[in-house]
């Protein structure tokens, strides 16, 4: 077993663009669930919309900043449309509606009727929309090796996308840190505890929930952009499992904490990589084929999610005394 290679792969996950993207998505979900108590089961829908918004407007010739704004605007409108019918209803309806809405986005995106815009189920090729982002890199062409990590400077799965991705994560953490300590965050916390009480104190609960839903969704859209920059926009890789991974990450790190989502994402992807690399190297093909190792990894994720929510709902960083899940 080549431990050197395995550990390098695992360490690479610590700062991979995907890890950053999922951390960002989990930060968005943290604003929904951790801060406000909204059960958004459609975070992948926000991410997919962000990815489509960014890629399609870039392909249409829009500059980088405009494409990012389009992505964020798509998520904001999506949040608004979802919020209007559901934010006045009980929590599980929001869960059902968000999961359904994310599926609608994916089903429409992969529909052959929109092949010319979304590329249907094959999606949009990375090279069609990566150029504005790559051109914005100050590093130019070529590769750069840092220790065992050798990535291109600007193209595709690059140092540039890592730097931008983690900078976005840092900014989002700062935002959450500021908000959690502000009176705004206090109102959200109150809503999480008992929204009728907050309403009786003269706060417009509906408006706060809407703000939280849209803000978290917009962060999800940016996560979607980061996620697709090193690859392609593929609607089927951004379906329900993606939302569930984001949930696992959030609960793993700790909801209602600032760094929980980041820690959760790093641990999630690094341990998944460790499990899969070790099994690939150590389990002979006759016992488990490569794709079975892949599936085994996801089974582990599912079981982890179950065990986490039952035995340690506050996650690694969370405070048991103020755990985010309604214990009623």
């Amino acid at each position: 077993m080549d431990w050197n290679n395995i550990l390098t792969n695992v360490a690479g996950e610590f700062f991979a663009p995907t890890t950053a993207a999922y951390a960002l998505a989990a930060i968005g979900l943290n604003i929904h669930f951790g801060l406000t108590g909204l059960i958004n089961m459609g975070q992948a829908g926000f991410m997919l919309l962000g990815a489509y918004g960014f890629a399609i407007s870039t392909i249409a010739g829009w500059p980088l900043w405009a494409a990012v704004l389009v992505a964020i605007a798509c998520a904001a409108v999506f949040g608004l449309i979802l919020g209007i019918p559901t934010l006045k209803l009980r929590g599980d309806y929001l869960a059902i509606v968000t999961i359904a809405a994310a599926e609608i986005v994916r089903l429409i995106g992969r529909s052959t009727a929109l092949t010319e815009i979304t590329g249907a189920s094959s999606g949009l090729r990375g090279n069609d929309y990566k150029h504005t982002f790559q051109d914005s890199s100050p590093f130019g062409d070529g590769n750069f090796q840092l220790g065992p990590f050798d990535y291109s400077l600007s193209a595709s799965n690059s140092w540039w996308v890592r730097i931008v991705g983690w900078a976005a994560v840092g900014l989002a953490c700062l935002l959450v840190w500021l908000l959690i300590r502000s009176p705004w965050g206090r109102v959200l916390k109150g809503i999480r505890e008992d929204e009728d009480a907050v309403r009786s104190l003269g706060k417009n609960v509906y408006s706060y929930k809407m703000q939280a839903l849209i803000l978290g969704g917009c962060i999800g859209a940016v996560a979607g952009i980061i996620y697709v920059l090193p690859r392609a926009v593929q609607p089927d890789s951004m379906g329900r499992p993606m939302t569930f991974f984001v949930w696992t990450i959030l609960l793993l790190g700790g909801a209602a904490t600032v760094f929980g989502p980041v820690l959760g994402s790093i641990i999630f992807w690094a341990s998944l990589m460790l499990i899969k690399s070790v099994m690939r190297a150590g389990v002979p093909d006759s016992i488990m084929r490569t794709e079975q190792i892949e599936q085994f990894g996801w089974i582990v994720v599912g079981v982890t999610l179950m065990l986490l929510i039952i035995f340690r709902p506050q996650g690694i960083l969370g405070d048991k005394k103020e755990l985010a899940i309604d214990v009623r």
């Binding site: 935002l175 500021l178 908000l179 502000s182 009176p183 705004w184 965050g185 206090r186 109102v187 109150g190 907050v198 104190l201 003269g202 706060k203 703000q211 803000l215």
Partner: peptide, 15 residues
């Protein structure tokens, strides 16, 4: 939470 007119309860000023 019971107090009115806290500007920090608006998203932008909260920052």
């Amino acid at each position: 939470l019971g107090a009115p007119d806290q500007p920090g309860e608006r998203l932008v000023t909260a920052l």
